Computed example of a mutant assay.
Amino acid sequence: MLCRFHRILRGDRLKAILGASSFTRNFRPSSGLDMRLVQFVEEGGVFPRVGVELSEGGDVVDLSACDITFPREMTGFLRGGAELLESAKTAAVSGKNIVKRDGIKIQAPVTRPDKVLCVGQNYKDHCEEQGAPIPTEPVIFSKFSSCIIGPGDDILYPDVSDAIDWEVELVIVIGKAGKNIKESEAMDHVIGYTVGHDVSARDWQLQKNAGQWLLGKTMDTFCPIGPVLVTKDELPDPHKLGIRCRVNGQTMQNSNTDQLIFKTETLVSFISRFVTLVPGDIILTGTPPGVGVFRKPNPIYLKRGDVVECEIDGIGTLTNKIV
């Protein structure tokens, strides 16, 4: 029998030998695996580690210090499935290998996902805001994973645009691979949620490039996520969470995830009809009303020096500065 160390580090080879179903069949965790997972680097360090945040904004248990076989980045950790989740929970309650918050830098909880998928027009009140009909099926687009940044990282104001807008979003994180997933089984493939900021260049999204959204959505640093990955067991109902965005302390968006048109199960099932979802994939689920482009009487856009806070109850606050 292979030890856990070899199962993780040689996962791709094992997948080829055993087949995808064998590789992912043990993901479904038992109940009680409520955790706040983070990626972090020590002060002055370079290489990330995976940890468990003991409370919102609090100290962190360093999982790699608990067991050298723990992967040091989140996508590798998620590929480990239920066994690693259970080991992480044991480490989190042990009271050992705790690092102080002021001695580390929290990174994006997932930094190298295979896919960054996004959903447009997915809040009822956001559709009403722009006078758009309620979609009958999810509107899917994407960003490049290279535009992901973490909490506290700067959002770079691009020279090619003067219409940069904010969008706070609930982000689904995939923990188990799957294709053609049934809605009734979709949550078995979800590890949890984080906060996302779908930074958008409205001129390139809506007026240029023949109406294709990609360039307006995926410029460098246009996908802040974090600060933590909250496991699904930690959130009683992800579709009843307050969600808001502040710019320089002023509330611009203030809604609730109960306004989502297509919820987690529907989105995971729908997307998996077209592409295979794998551990670490993220799905930005859409934004509520209050974005700058639809402000009256005139649009309001971000400028250099602005500080944007994206907050979701039960998860945390993601803060970034425009530079």
Rank of each mutant, 00 (worst) to 15 (best):
C3G: 15
H6T: 14
H6A: 12
D12T: 14
A20D: 11
S22I: 06
L33D: 06
L37H: 02
V38K: 00
Q39T: 14
F40Q: 08
V41I: 15
E42N: 10
E43K: 14
G44L: 06
G45E: 09
F47Q: 08
V50E: 05
V50W: 03
E53L: 06
E53Q: 13
S55P: 04
G57E: 15
D59A: 05
V61M: 00
L63D: 03
A65W: 02
C66Y: 15
I68R: 10
P71I: 09
R72C: 07
G81K: 00
G81V: 00
A88G: 03
T90R: 12
A92V: 02
S94H: 06
N97D: 13
I98C: 04
V99M: 02
K100I: 02
R101D: 04
R101S: 06
D102T: 13
G103C: 11
I104K: 04
I104E: 05
I106R: 15
Q107W: 02
T111G: 12
R112Q: 08
R112N: 13
P113A: 02
P113G: 02
D114V: 12
K115H: 14
K115Q: 13
L117R: 01
V119H: 09
Y123I: 04
C127R: 08
E128K: 15
E128F: 13
E129H: 00
A132E: 08
A132C: 03
S142Q: 10
F144M: 08
S146Y: 07
I149T: 13
D153M: 08
L156V: 15
L156H: 08
Y157K: 04
D159W: 03
V160C: 13
S161G: 10
A163I: 09
I164S: 07
V168L: 00
L170V: 07
L170A: 03
V171F: 10
I174W: 01
I174R: 00
G175E: 01
G178Y: 00
N180A: 03
K182L: 12
V199P: 02
A201E: 11
R202W: 06
D203P: 05
W204P: 08
G216T: 07
M219D: 09
C223S: 10
P227V: 08
V228F: 00
K232C: 05
L235W: 04
H239Y: 14
G242T: 10
G242P: 09
R244Y: 05
C245T: 15
N248R: 10
Q250E: 11
Q250K: 15
Q250Y: 11
T251R: 14
M252W: 13
Q253F: 01
N254C: 10
N256C: 13
L260H: 12
T266L: 05
L267Q: 10
V268P: 05
V268W: 01
S269M: 02
I271C: 00
T276I: 00
T276N: 03
G280K: 05
G280R: 05
G286M: 07
F294V: 13
F294A: 15
I300R: 08
G305F: 11
V307C: 03
V307K: 01
E309V: 11
C310E: 09
C310I: 05
